[in-house]
């Protein structure tokens, strides 16, 4: 890591620590939502942005994670164990959901994952004996760590921040490891990657499983934040929202989903002063962005940086003329 990167990283952490100080409860709640959706979007970014698969089921994994955590913590199990169970279950289900990706691609795969999200929604709504049906689950406890309670909004923010940082650290580790390179190779040229010894089936399944596990963790943090969950919070529209976070921020960029989550979660709050027009303005902004920069805000930033940067003096190979 270069000194500049360490400095920027430290500044970023300091901002995240200072951000909720002196803010009203609602603002802190919105910031917690941003951190949680960032975790979910980070996972989806691995599946979609790095590994090149399609998934419209991230909200379903948030739902599975949230319900498992809610049920376990309401039964007296500590959040750490409940969250571990949520993440593990989502990993295994994600692995299974990845199997169709070995046979179908692109919009066909989108439909498979969309159907899965709908299936999860229906199970959550219809299995009342377990999930409370449409009424959901109420009174989910917030975690306590010895003398430290997260009952108040500010301590919960720091709890969510720790979960976010651990997730971001794990994701950074995966992306910088040879696995990250293998995921990118899978996205860019799966046939070539396979010919180089990469078991593309296994990496496809892993991309789904890891991405889903992040969704499960997001759900496990979401449940104690809201303390009330119901199936509608994990319907298909929320999967589309998480996908929007990835795309708007920049799919395949590490910080893309965090920026995307900030836009999708925070921008409607910022535009609230426009009253009834905020959704229209928000939708227009997204459309304009997608038309002019399909690679998202980070892609746009990269394009601008390339344009502003002085043209490379001379690329190495051009010194040799056209002989190569």
């Amino acid at each position: 890591m270069k000194p500049l990167h360490i400095f920027l990283f430290a500044v970023g952490i300091a901002i995240l620590i200072a951000l909720p100080l002196g803010q009203k409860t609602y603002i802190v709640y919105v910031l917690c939502s941003w951190l949680i959706f960032s975790i979910a979007a980070m996972g989806l970014n691995l599946t979609v942005g790095y590994a090149g698969q399609v998934s419209l089921a991230q909200a379903a994994f948030m739902g599975i994670g949230a319900y498992i955590t809610a049920l376990m913590t309401m039964a007296g199990v500590h959040w750490v164990f409940a969250a571990t169970a949520s993440v593990s279950t989502c990993f295994v289900i994600g692995l299974l959901l990845g199997y169709p990706a070995l046979r179908v691609q692109h919009h066909f795969l989108a439909f498979v994952t969309l159907a899965f999200n709908t299936l999860v929604f229906l199970v959550l709504r219809n299995e009342e004996w377990l999930t409370g049906g449409s009424f959901g689950l109420v009174g989910i406890p917030r975690p306590e760590f010895g003398p430290l309670s997260t009952m108040k909004q500010l301590p919960f923010y720091y709890f969510a921040l720790i979960c976010f940082l651990v997730s971001a650290g794990a994701m950074a580790w995966i992306i910088r490891s040879p696995w990250g390179r293998a995921f990118k190779a899978l996205r860019e040229n799966p046939i070539r990657a396979n010919s180089l010894g990469l078991n593309t089936s296994r990496m496809t399944l892993l991309a789904f499983a890891i991405g889903s596990a992040f969704g499960g963790l997001a759900g496990a943090v979401m449940a104690p934040l809201v303390q009330f969950i119901e199936p509608g919070s994990f319907a298909l529209v929320h999967s589309l929202k998480i996908l929007l976070m990835v795309v708007v921020g920049g799919a395949g960029y590490f910080y893309g989903p965090m920026l995307g989550a900030a836009i999708v979660v925070l921008l409607p709050e910022v535009l609230r002063f426009t009253e009834g027009y905020y959704l229209i303005i928000y939708a227009l902004l997204v459309i304009v962005l997608m038309v002019f920069s399909p690679s998202g805000l980070f892609g746009l930033g990269k394009k601008l940086a390339d344009r502003l940067r002085p043209q490379r003096v001379e690329r190495g190979d051009l010194k040799q003329g056209s002989q190569l």
Partner: peptide, 12 residues
């Protein structure tokens, strides 16, 4: 093996 068509990872 090599491929008839160009077969590299273009963004890497």
């Amino acid at each position: 093996r090599t491929f008839q068509q160009l077969s590299v990872f273009p963004k890497m």
